[in-house]
Simulated assay, not measured.
Amino acid sequence: MGKSGFFGVRQKPSGNWGVEFSDVGRRWWTGTYPSAHEAARAYDVAMWRAERPREHLNFPEIESRVEAEMLVPQGIKMKEITMKKKTMKKSSVVVNASETDEEAMARFAREHPEYVQGELEHYWKREAEQKKEDEAGPSTVIPIESSSEEDWADFSKKEEEDGCDDPEKEEFWEQLRSSNDE
């Protein structure tokens, strides 16, 4: 029994009285009524229809369902309320002030092994993909054809004038010059 003094009856913000009850994992709404007394009578009709025991009634002296229905002037329309599925609570990490980061991470790994396993699988997959890319070999080099040899000559002269800090590059240019001279 709530504040209304009746089973299944509660006052709505509008001032009317609502009737709601649960039956075997399902919730039912029977409507709103101008007084708590009328709402309690509607609740009893719903209990009769749901075939609940008499101790669940607000007025146990009523002998039959027909008699209970006659006492509710506007009648009732039972409507099932769809219940939201329970959402999984996301796990959170609560770190104690005296706990180091390493201790908190170790505790989290013990309490939530599924997250640790998921993270490991992610990195294993990434590593396998990287390995495949490495095994594929170097990417294909597409030679660029110049419109004239003068473009290359200008480039090599500029490189020659600027000088080069890299000994391998310098060696390359020496070989190129010697092959051009032949």
Rank of each mutant, 00 (worst) to 15 (best):
G2D: 07
S4F: 11
S4C: 07
F7D: 01
G8F: 04
G8C: 08
V9S: 01
K12Q: 07
P13C: 02
S14T: 10
G15Q: 01
N16H: 10
E20Y: 13
F21H: 04
F21L: 07
D23E: 12
V24L: 08
R26C: 12
R27K: 13
R27Y: 12
W28D: 00
T30N: 08
G31S: 02
T32A: 05
T32F: 06
P34C: 05
S35L: 02
A36T: 04
E38L: 14
A39F: 08
R41T: 02
R41A: 02
R41K: 07
D44T: 01
M47C: 15
M47F: 11
W48R: 01
A50E: 09
R54K: 12
P60G: 10
P60S: 10
E61R: 12
I62W: 08
I62K: 03
S64G: 04
E67F: 00
A68N: 09
M70V: 02
V72C: 00
P73G: 10
Q74W: 05
G75C: 13
K79N: 09
E80T: 07
T82W: 15
M83A: 02
K85M: 15
K89H: 12
K90C: 03
S92F: 15
S92T: 03
V93W: 03
V94R: 06
D101T: 01
D101M: 01
M105G: 00
A106Y: 11
A106L: 14
F108D: 03
A109R: 10
A109Q: 10
R110K: 10
R110T: 14
Q117V: 10
E119S: 12
E119L: 13
E119I: 08
L120C: 07
H122W: 15
H122T: 01
W124G: 00
R126P: 03
R126T: 03
A128Y: 12
A128H: 05
E129K: 05
K131D: 02
K131Q: 06
E133C: 07
D134W: 09
E135I: 07
A136S: 11
A136L: 02
G137F: 04
G137C: 09
P138N: 13
S139Y: 14
S139R: 08
I142K: 04
P143E: 03
I144F: 14
I144C: 12
S146I: 05
S148K: 07
E149G: 14
E150V: 15
D151N: 05
A153Y: 13
A153I: 15
D154P: 03
F155Y: 15
K157L: 11
E160L: 09
G163V: 05
G163A: 08
C164R: 14
D165W: 07
E168M: 06
E168I: 05
K169I: 09
E170R: 11
E170T: 04
S178E: 14
S179E: 09
N180V: 00
D181N: 11
